[in-house]
Simulated scan of single mutants.
Amino acid sequence: MAISGAFALTGCDSAVGIPNDEPVQVTTASTTPTAVPSTPGSTLAPATSSAAPSVGPVAELPAAVQHWAADLKTSTVAQLQAKCWTIAPKNVAEMYADEQPILAALAQPGTATRDAITWKTRTTTVAVDRAALDTGYACPRVASAGADIEYDDADARHTVRRYLARSVGAPLDAADKESTYPLVCKASPATWDPTGTGKSSAAPLATNPGKLTGAAKFADQEIHSDPPRGDYIAVDVPVTNSAGTTQTRVFTLAAGPQGYCIGDVSP
């Protein structure tokens, strides 16, 4: 599913239990990078401030991306999946499989828009969410053959996984909080219309954030997503409450410039 004006990664895996679709580990402390000096012969600019122009050309690589690029050269896939916990592990493995085209793209001048900074060559597109620059460690998304960046169903499932992990008190990273990394669709503007009625409203979960109160655990290996319906996708997962009752909860997500957000939970 291509999302207009959004990041994305082409390719789907809607089956349950796909290898690497689940997170590698749960951390108890935030992954805070240290400064990484440039190495002799590196094609990447030295680490600089994460600040970038609101729009227009970006001559130097922001420090948050420089930190990640240094790890790309030395880390295993599992290590990158743990550090880039905001991205579905399956997509981390696929996007970061070939480091040289990525580093070559990052060596080019970037282009900043309101939502992202993008670097391109004829073979590779690398893009990072502008909000990620403020975290000090920005894991970009990658597309090959100059394709646009897209989000897929693995991203939708991972959004639900992160939301549930927070709900049961075991976030994938200690820094994964709604105030810093929002997963719930905003109440305003009121654009929620998953059934295509033409009458938009505020996302139900934004107006009633306590819909999942009492969740104690969830079946990570049984998270399943239905085929997308336009800009919306449904993800279902068995959730057990504090009384020990397990019920399949259906999450409805909407696509946006920064990926998927959760707009409703039922029943």
Rank of each mutant, 00 (worst) to 15 (best):
D236W: 00
A29H: 14
A216Q: 12
W68H: 02
I262R: 01
T34V: 10
I102Q: 05
L212S: 05
T39V: 14
A104M: 06
V237W: 02
A51M: 08
T32D: 04
D71A: 13
R114E: 07
H224E: 14
I117V: 15
D152I: 03
P33L: 09
Q258P: 03
A93P: 04
L72R: 03
G256I: 15
D220E: 11
V65G: 02
A147W: 00
K211A: 13
T34A: 07
A63C: 10
K177Q: 14
K90C: 04
M95D: 02
P33M: 05
G244P: 05
A2G: 09
E150R: 10
G11S: 12
T10E: 05
T124R: 12
S200C: 02
A78G: 14
S75E: 12
I117G: 04
V250H: 14
D153Q: 09
P204N: 08
G11V: 09
D220W: 04
P204R: 12
P53I: 07
T135Y: 01
L172N: 09
C12K: 13
A64W: 02
D220T: 12
G263V: 13
Q221C: 00
Y151Q: 10
V36I: 11
A243C: 06
A127Y: 00
E222I: 02
D153G: 11
P33G: 08
C261N: 08
Q247W: 00
G146M: 08
P182G: 06
K73C: 09
L9Q: 04
Y137A: 06
T28G: 15
Y232C: 02
A112P: 07
N20D: 15
Y137C: 04
D153E: 07
Y260K: 08
A215F: 01
T197F: 08
S42P: 14
S225Y: 00
M1R: 09
L183N: 06
T31C: 02
A105L: 02
S42W: 05
K177A: 12
P40S: 15
W68S: 04
T76S: 15
Y260I: 04
V142K: 02
R161D: 14
T191A: 08
R157L: 03
C261F: 13
F218C: 07
S266P: 08
Y137F: 10
I149K: 01
S54V: 13
P53G: 13
A78P: 14
Q79M: 06
A203Q: 12
W119D: 03
G230C: 09
A63D: 10
K120Y: 02
A206F: 08
T240D: 08
T191C: 01
S188E: 12
T31R: 09
P109Y: 14
A35Y: 05
V126W: 07
S54Q: 11
G169P: 06
T207W: 15
S179Y: 13
L72T: 05
A156S: 08
L44W: 05
S201V: 12
R157H: 08
S167V: 06
S4F: 00
D176T: 01
R122D: 11
Y232D: 07
T248M: 06
D220S: 11
A255W: 04
N91M: 00
V250Q: 11
A97H: 02
V265M: 01
P23C: 10
Q81F: 01
R141A: 10
A104G: 05
I3L: 04
E60A: 10
T48A: 13
A116M: 07
